[in-house]
Amino acid sequence: MGAHQTFPRGAVRIHGLSKSFTLNGAALPVLRDMNLYIRPGESLAVVGPSGCGKTTLLRVLAGLEAPDGGQVRIDGRPVQGVGTERAVIFQEPRLLPWLTVLGNVAFGFEVRGVPKAEAEAQARQNIRLVGLGEFEDAFPAQLSGGMAQRVGIARALAVQPEILLLDEPLGALDAMTRITMQDELARIWREQQVTMILVTHDLEEAIFLADRVLVMPREKGTPPRLIDIDLPRPRDRSEARFVAMRRRLMAEFGLH
C-alpha cells in the first residue's frame, strides 16, 4: 500500500479524561481522571463488568461523546468529534438494509466524497479480506450474523483507518463463530498494522487478541490496571501460559 504506512501512526494519548452522566438529577461519574498511552499499532483490550465505563471510553475515543474533562490526542492532535483516522465496529453490524454487501462496504468511503468507482474498488478488496468475495451482491437480510459482522469489519477497514475501535464486536455471535472471528481479527490486525482498541467482556478474547489488557474496576475509586499479555503469536487458547493468564485475569475480578 502507500508509503505512509511504513511509518506506523495511530498513537492515542488519553490525558486526565473524565466523563459523567446525569441519572435522576445526580451526576454519575463513569470515567475519572484517566491517563493512558496506546502505542501505534498496539492491540489494547478493555475489559470490565457492565457499567464500568468501557463502552463510554470507546465512544469518547470515537468522538461520539464529548468528555467532561481532559483530552484525547491522536498522533498529537486533540480529538474533536468523529475523525477520518478512526473507524468503529459496533456490536451490531449496523448495515444499511437497502444496500448490497458491496454498497455497504463502499458506504464509509463514499460519504467522505470518494468517487463511487474508487470506493467500490477499495471495498471489493476488503470484502475479499474478510472472505466474503462471493457475496458482494447479497443484501444484509440474506446474511448470517457472522457474515453481517464481517461486512461491518470490512466497511471499517475499507476507509483505511489508523485506529480501529471495536465495541464488543463479537458479543452477539454464537460461540463457534466467535472463535473463527477472533482468528480473523488477529489476522486482520497483523496484516493491516492498525492500532486496535477492543472493548469486550470476554476475557479469553482479550488475552487472545491484545498486547495489553486494561482492566476497569466497577468501583470508581480504584484506578484501572494494565496487564501485559506477553504471549507469542499466534496464540493457542489451550496452552499453559494462556490458561494461566486467563486465571490471573479472572482473579482480577474476584473470580476463581
Partner: peptide
C-alpha cells in the same frame, strides 16, 4: 438511530 450514528462515525455530514 444506530444507523445514523454509524454513518456519522464515517464522517458523514
Amino acid at each position: 438511530r444506530k444507523l445514523i450514528e454509524m454513518a456519522r462515525t464515517f464522517g458523514a455530514s
